Simulated assay, not measured.
Amino acid sequence: METGSARGAQVAGDEPVWTGLPPGLLRLRRLLLVVWLGALAVAAGLLLGLLVGPAWAAFALLPLALMAWGWGMVERNWRSWRYAERADDLLISRGVLWHEETVVPYGRMQLVEVTSGPLERHFGLASVQLHTAAAATDATIPGLDPAEAERLRDRLTELGEARSAGL
């Protein structure tokens, strides 16, 4: 027995077919990391160098070291995000240290939104937000291609209406 979606198709009893996030989200997050920590390094270097002395300006290397470490961590976090469409529910998995997997039954979905802020639009990204009756099970899939986000929204809405009509 197979589901109707080619992207989320799976055979009953098998492992779900996971879909990862596109690389645009990784580029966006790395850009934000470089901009914020780069600005912090410059500000720390200038302020410490001018106010305390040139030797203290070496503390500006701390944000740069944090940037180097964060570069790899951002990628690990990006790789941890994935989702799978199953026959009766949507799975969302994320997390490196604390792995979290959310199962959202189609019949429990009340609202499916596609959002895209200014930076997301610049990078050609959109997020899908799922709202259910229980606030604790609200879930988000960030950084999708807008066409995929709209396809997912339409599919989830259709499946949600079909499942809730059967209650």
Rank of each mutant, 00 (worst) to 15 (best):
L47C: 09
I141M: 08
L51I: 12
T3V: 14
A87G: 05
E101L: 15
I141H: 03
L152F: 08
E120K: 00
L66N: 03
Q10W: 07
T157N: 03
W78V: 13
P105T: 07
G49N: 04
S80I: 08
L61W: 10
G53N: 05
A135C: 05
E148A: 13
P105Q: 06
G24H: 05
A134F: 09
W98N: 09
G20M: 10
V17H: 12
A68S: 02
V74R: 08
D154P: 00
R151S: 08
T140A: 14
R94A: 08
L37A: 09
A165T: 07
L51G: 05
A12Y: 09
A12F: 07
V104L: 15
G8L: 13
V128H: 04
V52K: 09
L66A: 15
A162N: 02
M1R: 09
G70F: 02
E158F: 11
G20V: 02
A68R: 12
V96F: 15
L37F: 14
A65S: 09
H122P: 01
L91W: 00
V17N: 14
A9W: 11
L62H: 04
L91P: 04
A68Q: 03
A165H: 12
M73A: 09
G38R: 07
V128L: 15
L159D: 00
R155W: 11
P16G: 06
L144M: 12
S127E: 09
L144N: 03
M73K: 06
D138P: 02
R151H: 08
A134N: 14
R108W: 04
A60I: 10
S93D: 15
P54E: 03
L64S: 08
T132S: 14
E85G: 05
W18R: 12
S93W: 00
L144W: 01
D89R: 15
G72V: 01
T19L: 14
S116G: 11
A133P: 04
V17K: 14
A55R: 14
A133Y: 01
E113C: 00
L48R: 07
I141C: 02
R29N: 12
G4A: 11
R30M: 13
V17F: 07
Y83K: 09
L21W: 06
